[in-house]
């Protein structure tokens, strides 16, 4: 088996506040293989964006990585100096955010921003960098790239702007792209185009993607594997098709059932009672236990760690612990 591109082990992010320490990400582990698309899905408060921010070293104060390690190609990138982190960002990890305007400086031309990023990370001439930038913009589907490269961000439509951001994220040829809700702000028809561009261009360049989103549909279309997050923990991880068709964790089961389907004629949607706990009130044991209909005594006391249930699939749920301490009578 090849070496993972990114390896996250026991990542824990904490926020000290006046009412105690909040744990936004709690002992999260996963790998991303070279060229792979890993979807990270979860509802608001699940800690999915925080996980992304931790990897690129952009956690806002007073938050901090309290435990765990992050390795990029075997080399630790957590806790390194800010200047070393800046080289990692951009050069080795590209970033795409929900709002393109957070990545683009409204005061500079697109050409300046892309060319500068290329030249910061790669030793090539100005002309060469510009040629490359035009090629990239062409690749992400910006018509008439040669002329439009000298436009300002506000001269592009929302969808075109997000294409520019993708070009910017990929211009230094990173090995990994972290995309945080890249299509959430876009219309359905534009969203489909952006997903296509992202998939194609990363595949062409062999870059892996960590796709963070709340939209299971986007993950289904894009990702190879998916990690389902709940209250700052990974509850299930596995190949996308398996997780969608045959979810194992009661939360994933509920989540898949809650999504209305285009083909479906279901009168009612599956609903999970209650809502995601606040960070200040995460239940003991399994964080999902108060909302789970298959809960038993052990869930209320002991936190489940990911258990391998099939090749490539892990589920953090006591139901799959062998030999089972049989509490299913409670279900």
């Amino acid at each position: 088996m090849t070496e993972p591109l990114l390896s996250v082990r026991g990542l824990t992010v904490e926020f000290p506040t006046r009412r105690g320490v909040l744990t936004a990400v709690n002992n999260v582990s996963f790998d991303i293989m070279p060229g792979e698309v890993l979807g990270v899905v979860g509802e608001s408060g699940a800690g999915k964006s925080m996980t992304g921010s931790a990897i690129i070293g952009l956690i806002e104060r007073p938050g901090r990585i309290a435990a765990g390690e992050i390795r990029l190609q075997g080399e630790r990138i957590d806790g390194i100096s800010p200047s070393a982190m800046r080289t990692v960002r951009g050069r080795r990890i590209g970033m795409i955010f929900q709002d393109p305007l957070t990545s683009l400086n409204p005061l500079y031309r697109i050409s300046d921003q892309i060319v500068e990023t290329i030249r910061t990370h790669l030793p090539i001439s100005l002309a060469e960098a510009r040629r490359r930038a035009i090629g990239l913009l062409d690749d992400v589907g910006i018509p008439d790239a040669e002329r439009r490269i000298d436009d300002y961000p506000h001269q592009f439509s929302g969808g075109m702007r997000q294409r520019v951001v993708i070009a910017l994220a990929l211009c230094a040829e990173p090995d990994l792209v972290i995309a945080d809700e890249p299509t959430t702000a876009l219309d359905v028809s534009v969203q489909a185009q952006i997903i296509d561009v992202m998939k194609r261009i990363c595949a062409d360049r062999g870059a892996a993607i960590m796709l963070i989103t709340h939209d299971m549909g986007v993950i289904a279309e894009t990702a190879n594997r998916v990690a389902v997050l709940y209250a700052g923990r990974v509850v299930e991880i596995g190949p996308v098709r398996d997780v969608i068709k045959d979810a194992r964790h009661p939360y994933s089961v509920g989540l898949m059932g809650a999504i209305p389907k285009l083909g479906g004629d279901a009168e009612r949607l599956t609903q999970i009672p209650g809502s995601m706990p606040r960070l200040s009130a995460i239940p003991q044991g399994c964080a999902f236990n108060p909302r789970c209909e298959r809960v038993f005594d052990r869930c209320r006391v002991e936190r489940p760690e990911p258990i391998a249930v099939a090749p490539q699939r892990e589920v953090a749920c006591w139901l799959y612990d062998e030999p089972r301490s049989d509490g299913r009578a409670h279900a």
């Binding site: 509920g254 059932g257 009612r268 599956t270 609903q271 999970i272 009672p273 209909e293």
Partner: peptide, 8 residues
Amino acid sequence: MTNDPMTT
């Protein structure tokens, strides 16, 4: 999960 219609 819970599937009780509220009508009754």
